[in-house]
């Protein structure tokens, strides 16, 4: 419990103040307040990403090109982060790329254990405007399928060539889940 030390010089090894509660002690506290916020949001995707999401619905991966440095942004931005110019030119990419990194998740968004692990990663897309092997690249964060946890752990999956597996057109809703996952390119 609290043993704050007074005095002119308090070195870095004295007992710091504060009262720790065990879980049960917290539940037994007088005046414990429970509160659940009720907030709902609608997010507009903006100039660049609205069009990108429309592209996904059509089964296309679109990027924007900076007129000054030539970088092609996926996901698209309506401005170039490096040049601070407006990016007006739209480019369609083949959608293929290589796996930059991949992990096997055994938990979901709120730490619930998953029955089946999911594999997610970063896909570095084939896009013009970047130095090969450079620090920046066009890419997406998405699920990977057709690979096993062992592929991830052995490192075999990194650098693997992949392409998007699209949902059937009638199921696409113009969101990032219109791509079911990225899967290995055969052969």
């Amino acid at each position: 419990m609290s043993k704050g030390l007074s005095g002119r010089r308090q070195p870095g090894w004295v007992n710091p103040p504060g009262h720790y509660l065990k879980r049960d002690e917290m539940y037994a506290l007088p005046g414990l307040v429970r509160y659940k916020p009720r907030a709902r949001y609608l997010f507009s995707a903006g100039q660049a990403q609205s069009r990108f999401l429309q592209g996904l619905k059509e089964g296309r991966i679109l990027g924007t090109r900076c007129p000054r440095c030539g970088r092609v942004y996926v996901p698209p931005r309506m401005y170039c982060e490096y040049c601070h110019t407006r990016t007006m030119e739209w480019v369609e990419l083949p959608g293929t790329g290589v796996v930059h990194t991949a992990v096997v998740s055994y938990i979901a968004a709120f730490r619930e254990r998953l029955k089946e692990p999911v594999i997610v990663g970063v896909i570095k897309l084939d896009a013009p405007g970047y130095v090969e092997g450079g620090y920046e690249f066009a890419g997406l964060f998405h699920r990977l399928c057709g690979v096993t946890p062992e592929d991830v752990m052995s490192g075999r999956v990194i650098g693997m060539r992949v392409k998007p597996r699209w949902k059937p057109p009638e199921e696409r809703r113009g969101d990032v889940n219109d791509i079911e996952c990225f899967e290995p390119v055969e052969g």
Binding site: A45, A102, S105, A109, L140, F141
Partner: peptide
């Protein structure tokens, strides 16, 4: 828009 629909957990980004 691009990340939450995938149901990410914070630990994912560190793991990656």
């Amino acid at each position: 828009i691009l990340e939450r629909p995938l149901g990410p957990n914070l630990i994912w980004i560190f793991a990656m």
